[in-house]
Design a protein around this nucleic acid. Structure first.
Lengths: 222, 222
DNA sequence: ACATTCAAGTTTGTATACAGAATGATCAAT
DNA sequence: ATTGATCATTCTGTATACAAACTTGAATGT
């Protein structure tokens, strides 16, 4: 049945619905509301967001492009799920990208970047000392993002952020105990020192060492 | 006017039309048939491929996700075009990714990978000696792809390939003279030696050095 | 001459319709 | 009981329709 006159308006309303669906789904996945391996049904999403299949589809395909969702065997898309080996490969790639960011950041370190990194680390320490897991996680993300920005290279930064989003669901359950937080914050200290040394190789090795600590915690939780 | 009975069949034919459009456009861009900055018109593509806007749109948005196209200021999409600074940033990111590949490849070097790399380099030398530019370019791509495979990490490999595609249009005009080919092939020799040393740091530095040579040629041509 | 407003023409985002594939379920035959 | 075939039921890809936003440019007023 075609629109008569009282039908829902369509056309192009303000801030792209697609973007909204995309971030909403990303949050769900990051928060674990959608478990790895779970299948997403286009029509269900259609109902949930009160839109047609077209924007849902577009949002899904963007998430697929980012590796957050993967195309199902024959049909549909599912939340990315990795075998132990795949997980370690994705993390290896992320480690290298992070290391590259640290390398470039060390080369170009600006005063602003220094301050932003120090501020984020201060927040990490504060959160670790009182054992606030979710605050620590936020501060930890901030610190890494500050390092990405410190590269002065938006392409590197975007790449790193993308991998961080992609691995988010697996890193979520990483910090089990207060001791984990403290250990992570201490690992940050060495990492930051290596970047502030302004020696590329040392910074990149520093980041690899930090990521190794971090990955050990992640693997323990998966 | 709606389908009556003799209309074109739609539904889902064989190998996704979207994929076809995507690769076709990628080729056009790589071959320079679509110049950087050029605007792509959805409707024109619709006519060219004899399909509706839906698959065209999907193909375009995938290319946007890969950074090969970029969304226009207000409307439409255009072939990615970079200022000198942006170009150097994209290349910096690519260099780091390539260096990471070299690092991992050196760590895990298998006999098969060694052979593949040597074969590709042999092809490079052969092409350089007789000054066959397009053959050299192919062999050069093969060599880099062989290194990506040598990482044993499909995520790293895909990432590197993606950046290579993205920078393709700018590297295309790189090899101006036979001397360029020979210089590139010689640079490969050192690169390969550094990877075959199975020393991570040396391999990653080796790749960075090679990419620097390569980038100098690229900048000269842009 | 310049700014402002308004109408026509494009372009985009979203909705909906529909054909063909994949899946699953029912039922007959071995 | 297991296998195989047939049919109904999703699900997916593509086509088409249409409304809102943007662009353009001409007409109007200052």
């Amino acid at each position: 049945m075609a629109n008569t006159s009282d039908a829902k308006p369509n056309g192009a309303p303000r801030g792209s619905t697609v973007k909204h669906i995309e971030t909403e789904l990303m949050n769900d996945i990051a928060a674990g509301a959608l478990a790895p391996g779970e299948r997403l049904d286009e029509v269900k999403l259609t109902e949930r967001f009160g839109v047609s299949r077209t924007p849902v589809r577009e949002a899904l395909s963007r998430l697929v492009a980012q590796g957050i969702l993967i195309p199902g065997e024959k049909r549909g898309v599912r939340v990315a799920q990795y075998t132990r080996e795949e997980l370690s490969q994705v993390f290896e790639a992320m480690h290298e990208i992070e290391a590259a960011c640290a390398r470039i950041a060390a080369q170009r370190l600006s005063l602003l970047a220094r301050v932003e990194i120090e501020a984020a680390q201060a927040a990490c320490i504060a959160a670790a000392e009182i054992g606030e897991r979710s605050a620590y996680q936020r501060a930890n993300e901030d610190l890494h993002e500050a390092i990405y920005r410190a590269t002065g290279n938006p392409y590197m930064a975007e790449l790193a952020s993308e991998f961080r989003r992609r691995t988010g669901p697996f890193r979520a359950k990483k910090f089990a105990t207060k001791a984990d937080l403290v250990a992570s914050a201490q690992s940050h200290e060495k990492l930051i020192a290596s970047i502030f040394s302004e020696d590329s190789d040392e910074a990149s090795n520093g980041m690899r060492a930090h990521m190794a600590v971090s990955f050990r915690q992640t693997l323990a939780a998966n």
